[in-house]
Design a protein around this nucleic acid. Structure first.
Length: 211
DNA sequence: ACCCAGGGTCATA
DNA sequence: TATGACCATGGG
């Protein structure tokens, strides 16, 4: 996997789909909530859950920390795994409030902020990197199942490598550019939602040609 | 009816 | 290090 291959793939994606304006949220805190709610869950269901939180006036870290877990669970019900996600959201919000919110966290170096996020029960590597990239504008490359499939299908990676190995591989080959990492991951997800299966009249099939 | 979706934790070997 | 069970809704 060379830098040129990665950039060629990026340009193909960008030419086909254009800018994606990620993350789909109104505020950085909403990004954090969405990152937890979308764990192994279709985004459409996350949107419903976030909408209900907003309508209840509960899309706020202090509100989430202060409410009963079962009440929170009922609000986020459409996103699935609602009991465990209610706890995870409260864990994250407790951590966030305790740290002084964005103001208190922005001064941390990226690696320190990442380690701190990973100390929250319910926040794993992908959720942490979503938050770092899309809520804190840090240059981290998010690895998800789509990334493994696409790059694996192109033969650039095996696909089963440990998370940290893949993240290091991408970040060491690409310029440490937040805007690039932001767009790259968003484009991979976009491409997964409108796949080039070769059977339909797909305008994007060029993307998966060999590099 | 079946499968999976923008994962993570915990127990076990 | 690496599987396996578990969490649960909604759309195809």
């Amino acid at each position: 996997m060379t830098k040129r291959q990665l950039m060629t793939l990026y340009r193909r994606l960008y030419r086909s789909y254009g800018p994606q304006y990620w993350w789909p949220a109104e505020t950085p805190f909403e990004v954090m909530v969405g990152a937890v709610l979308t764990q192994n869950t279709a985004w459409i269901n996350v949107e419903k859950a976030v909408r209900q939180l907003k309508q209840a006036g509960k899309l706020d870290p202090d509100q989430i920390v202060g409410m009963r877990a079962d009440r929170l669970a009922s609000l986020i019900r459409p996103s699935g795994y609602f009991n465990i996600k209610a706890r995870r959201l409260q864990n994250l919000c407790r951590w966030y409030v305790h740290a002084g919110g964005h103001t208190g966290l922005e001064s941390l170096l990226t690696e320190a902020l990442r380690d701190s996020l990973l100390s929250v029960n319910g926040v794993g590597p992908e959720t942490a990197d979503d938050i770092l990239l899309y809520a804190f504008d840090r240059p981290v490359f998010v690895i998800d199942a789509y990334t493994r499939r696409l790059l694996g299908g192109l033969g650039l990676i095996e696909g089963t490598e440990p998370y940290e190995d893949l993240r290091a591989a991408f970040e060491s080959r690409l310029d440490s550019d937040t805007a690039l990492f932001n767009e790259y991951h968003a484009l991979i997800v976009r491409h997964a939602k409108e796949p080039c299966d070769g059977t339909s009249a797909c305008r994007h099939c060029k993307i998966e040609r060999k590099l």
